[in-house]
């Protein structure tokens, strides 16, 4: 059996935590065998989601876990906060919509970058779950 890497939790409070979260994500992705291009995609996605926390929620958590199985390598990341939530998820997932003066491509762009993407949000709890997946060869 291969060794599983323990999940890492990074507390997100300010922009230095964004840097830390994506460094951890990059490192874990590297350890479990993702390519440089995948690592870059992942680091960017983590950067987008954690920046949303800093910008809109103030505080949250980014959990990075190795969820690989026999058939595939899978890196799962859950980014969670207890902020005000997203009013209109459908609109937030469309390109060009932003309530905070951004480019409005953060969330939809992240979905395009990742293999799996799920979002749920209500006032007091927003949770985005993303994953990178590669078949083992």
């Amino acid at each position: 059996m291969r060794e599983m890497i323990d999940p890492e939790r990074v507390l997100i409070r300010d922009s230095t935590d964004i840097v830390r979260a994506r460094a951890v994500a990059r490192q874990v992705a590297n350890q479990i065998g993702f390519t440089l291009a995948d690592q870059t995609r992942l680091a960017t996605a983590v950067s987008e989601l954690t920046r949303n926390i800093v910008q809109y929620a103030g505080e949250g958590v980014c959990e990075i876990a190795d969820a690989s199985g026999e058939e595939e390598i899978r890196l799962r990341i859950i980014v969670e906060d207890n902020g005000p939530g997203i009013d209109d998820i459908d609109r937030a997932m469309k390109d060009g919509y932003s309530t905070g003066g951004g480019l409005g491509v953060g969330l939809p762009g992240t979905r395009r970058l990742m293999d799996d993407f799920a979002i749920e949000s209500s006032p007091g709890c927003t949770r985005v779950s993303i994953a990178l997946v590669r078949r083992r060869v």
Partner: peptide, 14 residues
């Protein structure tokens, strides 16, 4: 811009 960076940017939609 690195090759990975270019790929990421286009996927992001920038």
């Amino acid at each position: 811009i690195s090759p990975e960076g270019a790929q990421t940017l286009t996927k992001l939609g920038i």
